[in-house]
Computed example of a mutant assay.
Amino acid sequence: MTFKPLRKAVFPVGGLGTRFLPATKALPKEMLPVVDRPLIQYAVDEALEAGIEQMIFVTGRGKSAIEDHFDVAYELETTMAQRGKSMELLHQTRLKPGAVAYVRQQEPMGLGHAVWCARDIVGDEPFAVLLADDLMVGEPGCLKQMVDAYNRTGGNMICAQEVPHDQTHMYGVITPGARGGALTQVQGLVEKPKPGTAPSNLSVIGRYILQPEVMRVLEGQEKGAGGEIQLTDAMARMIGDQPFHGLTFAGRRFDCGDKAGFIQANIALALAREDIGGAVRDFARAELG
Rank of each mutant, 00 (worst) to 15 (best):
G177N: 00
V186P: 00
K192F: 00
G206H: 08
I158F: 05
N156G: 03
I205S: 04
G141C: 14
I174R: 05
M146E: 01
L143R: 02
P140F: 01
V173C: 04
Q187Y: 01
N151K: 15
E139R: 13
V186A: 04
E139A: 03
D166I: 04
I209S: 03
L202S: 01
V173K: 03
P195E: 11
T197S: 15
N151V: 13
A178F: 15
P164W: 15
D166C: 06
L202H: 00
C142A: 15
R179A: 13
N151H: 14
L143T: 05
Y150K: 00
E139M: 06
L143N: 00
A178Y: 08
A149E: 15
K192C: 04
S203C: 12
Q161F: 08
K192D: 03
K144V: 11
C142H: 03
G206A: 11
Q161Y: 02
G180Y: 02
T184D: 01
T168C: 14
T153V: 12
G155Y: 09
C159K: 07
K144F: 10
T168M: 12
G155D: 09
Y171D: 08
M157D: 05
R152C: 04
P199G: 09
K194W: 13
G154L: 03
V147Y: 11
D148L: 02
P140Y: 10
G180H: 14
G188M: 04
P176K: 01
G141A: 13
G154D: 14
A178V: 15
T184S: 05
Q211Y: 07
V186G: 05
L202W: 01
D148M: 08
P164V: 01
P193Q: 13
L189V: 00
N151M: 15
T184Q: 00
N156D: 07
C142T: 05
G172W: 11
D148R: 15
S200D: 08
L183D: 01
Q161T: 14
Y150L: 12
M157E: 03
R152L: 05
K192H: 11
G180M: 07
N151Q: 13
P193M: 09
E162Q: 11
I205M: 12
D166E: 14
Y150N: 04
G177V: 10
Q211E: 15
V186K: 04
Q161R: 15
A198F: 01
S203F: 04
V163I: 10
G172C: 09
C159D: 10
K194Q: 14
L183T: 06
L189I: 03
Y171M: 09
G181S: 13
S203P: 03
I158G: 06
I174Q: 01
P164C: 06
V163L: 07
G155R: 07
V186F: 05
T184I: 12
H169I: 02
A160P: 02
P195Y: 08
S203E: 02
A178E: 10
P164D: 10
Q185D: 13
I209R: 02
